[in-house]
Write a protein that binds this DNA or RNA. Structure first.
Length: 556
RNA sequence: UGUCCUAUGGUGUAAUGGUAACACUGCAGAUUUUGAUUCUGCCUUUCUAGGUUCGAAUCCUGGUAGGACAACCA
């Protein structure tokens, strides 16, 4: 956790509990995902918090799948979740499932029935909703509320035995239909679902509800600090009620604000829609805020952990600038990613006074920011090069210090060039740039005495390898797509992916493997995609470099 | 016209009754064979009205604003 920052409110609570010897000073947290979707960056806040808190105070963390709704859950999700947590860099003490506790939960329910604290209700979903009242009006008691213990026990056993159809009966806690807290108005404990479960198969046809399962699961595992998001705050009295009535281990729930990111949607329901309706290529589409999406995009676990640590934890709603996440991945990759030159929008440059057919191998530092500079590679240099179309301006402005008629520029790792002429097609597009080079200006051996302000990247045409670049931008146009007018999908950015199929890279990139990360000099950080083939290497743009020139140029 | 939660620069988060700070963003400059990185400086902050106190971002009361809660979802 953060060192330079004060402790967050949860660290304070845990520190106080440890100091006071609560639970013998033991700390056990849990991360409780429902296996009905892939983990996203919001989950990583919870993961970093739960695992981080335990690490900080010498405790442990369980992974518990909250699998009480077989309709939406699947082992595919279980596997992806485990994979993503490991990737983020955390190891759980135990892998548990709420479904492991179905039998115990059933027995607890019988106990509550015997205590007169639960009853079988024959009302339909509509009737139950109608009797629930509203936040400002009290509800009404169900006509089945006062069944005898014997009848309830019998009915509940027959529910389990499969004698009733889906929806025919529920088991409800008998609390207070007039409570100002809606969750106290006889919450449902069990519903009938004749649906096989991803782990228990056909063993059960009644499944516990979240409110009945979650707290007891925590309690069964002896969880000391159960952290969840703010929307569960009103559930806490129910959480405590079951624990108290059952007289079991007193786990305690603490709530914190969820993570919201600008230009991002973060609900699994919405992400599932994006996947199902093919707005993205899958859960791991590099535009998705899922951990698998970020991984494919080229984000590192370190950068995400750092992000989660630095955004802090509090109880007020927040909206974090996605630019902060980008800051952390740039910070990480700046130190770790090797540099390589790739021309994304090529234009031919010919050095008139360079010998025909000559090829020089010039050394290039792989990473000036790394401690050992990342070693060097050899970059072929010759008479014909590709340079960036942007790096030539027919009528250069005063502040432009790249190439233009009569202007001099440095080719990175190579020579200084002076532009002597250029050709255009009928449409007026520049097709070819001619330059002379200064042989004594070679990088590292420059005795020319010429000083230039601009440095551009380049690729030797004969040795260039062709590659595909996937240039990603934010998936949504508005800052807060979930609260924008209309459906969130109306606000998808139509230009969130631009594919460049004719980029030229220096031959060094032939060695790249899927997942390898690079800085394409002056362009941004890129990560090789698994879609790559020998003929068509594919690179995802993780994030661009900061670009104060674009800002300057944009001012006009 | 219910219950509960929250309110500190543009965005987050600290300050735990004693000089409002840190990061990001923005702006300006220095350095630079990446208009990157790095470095320096600057801008901008306690929702409001009362009260308690020698002293309030912090405690109390009222107001205002935002959020959560009426799934056989979690």
């Amino acid at each position: 956790m953060s060192i330079e920052k004060g402790p967050n409110f949860l660290e304070e609570i845990v520190a106080e509990d440890v100091k006071n010897g609560k639970h013998g000073g033991r700390v056990l947290t849990r991360f409780p995902p429902e296996p009905n979707g892939y983990l996203h960056i919001g989950h990583s806040k919870s993961i970093c918090l739960n695992f981080g808190l335990a690490q900080e105070f010498g405790g442990k963390t369980n992974l518990r799948f909250d699998d009480t709704n077989p309709v939406t859950e699947d082992t595919e999700y279980v596997e992806s979740i485990k994979n993503d947590i490991r990737w983020l860099g955390f190891n759980w003490a135990n892998e548990f499932y709420a479904s492991d506790y179905f039998e115990q939960l059933y027995e607890c329910a019988c106990e509550l029935i015997k205590k007169g604290l639960a009853y079988v209700d024959d009302s339909t979903a509509e009737e139950i909703a109608a009797m629930k009242g509203t936040p400002t009006e009290p509800g009404k008691n169900s006509p089945y509320r006062d069944r005898s213990v014997e009848e309830n026990l019998d009915l509940f056993a027959r529910m389990r035995a499969g004698e009733f159809k889906d929806g025919d009966k529920t088991l409800r806690a008998k609390i207070d239909m007039a409570s100002p807290n809606m969750h106290f108005r006889d919450p449902l404990m069990y519903r009938i679902r004749h649906v096989p479960h991803h782990r228990t198969g056909k063993k059960w046809c009644i499944y516990p509800m979240y409110d009945y399962a979650h707290g007891q699961s925590d309690s069964i595992e002896n969880i000391t600090h159960s952290i969840c998001t703010l929307e569960f705050e009103v559930h806490r009295p129910v959480y405590d009620w079951f624990i108290e009535k059952l007289n079991i281990f007193p786990s305690h729930q603490y709530e914190m604000a969820r993570l919201n990111l600008t230009y991002t949607v973060m609900s699994k329901r919405k992400l599932l829609q994006l996947v199902n309706e093919k707005h993205v290529s899958g859960w791991d589409d590099p535009r998705m805020p899922t951990l698998s999406g970020y991984r494919r995009r080229g984000y590192t676990p370190e950068s995400i952990r750092e992000f989660c640590d630095r955004i802090g934890v509090a109880r007020r709603e927040n909206m974090i600038d996605v630019g902060l996440l980008e800051y952390f991945i740039r910070e990480d990759l700046n130190k770790s990613a090797n540099r390589v030159m790739v021309v994304t929008d090529p234009i031919k440059l010919i050095i008139d006074n360079y010998p025909e057919g000559q090829v020089e191998l010039l050394p290039g530092e792989n990473n000036p920011e790394a401690e050992d500079k990342g070693g060097t590679r050899e970059i072929p240099f010759s008479k014909e090069l590709w340079i960036e179309r942007d790096d030539f301006m027919e009528e250069p402005t005063k502040k432009y210090f790249r190439l233009g008629p009569g202007l001099k520029v440095r080719l990175k790792h190579a020579y200084i060039l002076e532009c002597v002429s250029f050709k255009k097609d009928e449409a007026g597009n520049v097709t070819e740039i001619h330059c002379n080079y200064f042989p004594e200006s070679k990088s590292g051996h420059d005795t020319s005495g010429i000083s230039v302000k601009g440095v551009i990247h380049w690729v030797s045409a004969a040795q260039a390898i062709n590659c595909e670049l996937r240039m990603y931008d934010r998936l949504f146009i508005p800052e807060d797509p979930s609260n924008a007018e209309g459906d969130f999908k109306d606000h998808i950015n139509p230009n969130s992916l631009e594919v460049i199929s004719n980029a030229y890279a220096e031959p060094e990139l032939k060695k790249a493997k899927a997942g390898d990360k690079f800085q394409f000099v002056r362009k941004g950080y890129f990560c090789m995609d698994p879609d790559s083939t020998a003929d068509n290497p594919v690179f995802n743009r993780t994030v661009g470099l900061k670009d104060s020139w674009a800002k300057e140029a944009g001012k006009k």
